[in-house]
């Protein structure tokens, strides 16, 4: 992963220009829900949120979101709080630095 100060430029299909920002906005909402679910050890919710991120991220062009979602889903299955916390941190870091280019 790039250092924390670097921007991450992601090329997005021009046909998705009107919905890609909204997708990232929804992930910012997840960033509030995920720590709350982890705090409550609500692994069922974590699993669903991770599963959805895994299934949708790369479809919008955000491959890293798919990877982070996979880590959250796997972490929820094994109830590995440390792995989930790490994945949430990665998501926050990614969302702060991601920059979209439409092609």
């Amino acid at each position: 992963m790039a250092s924390d100060s670097e921007r991450i430029t992601v090329s997005i299909d021009k046909d998705l220009e009107d919905i890609a920002p909204g997708y990232l906005e929804n992930r910012r909402k997840d960033l509030e829900l995920l720590p709350q679910a982890l705090e409550k050890a609500d692994y069922a919710t974590l699993r669903v949120l991770g599963h959805r991120m895994k299934g949708s991220g790369a479809g919008y062009g955000f491959n890293l979101i798919t990877e982070i979602g996979r880590a959250i889903e796997e972490g929820a299955k094994s109830e590995d709080a440390a792995a989930i916390r790490n994945a949430i941190d990665n998501l926050g870091n990614y969302l702060e630095r991601v920059e979209l280019v439409y092609e």
Partner: peptide
């Protein structure tokens, strides 16, 4: 049941 998937597909196919 995932609104983001529904939006992705519906938006793309409608276009």
């Amino acid at each position: 049941d995932d609104p983001d998937i529904c939006k992705l597909i519906s938006n793309y196919l409608a276009k």
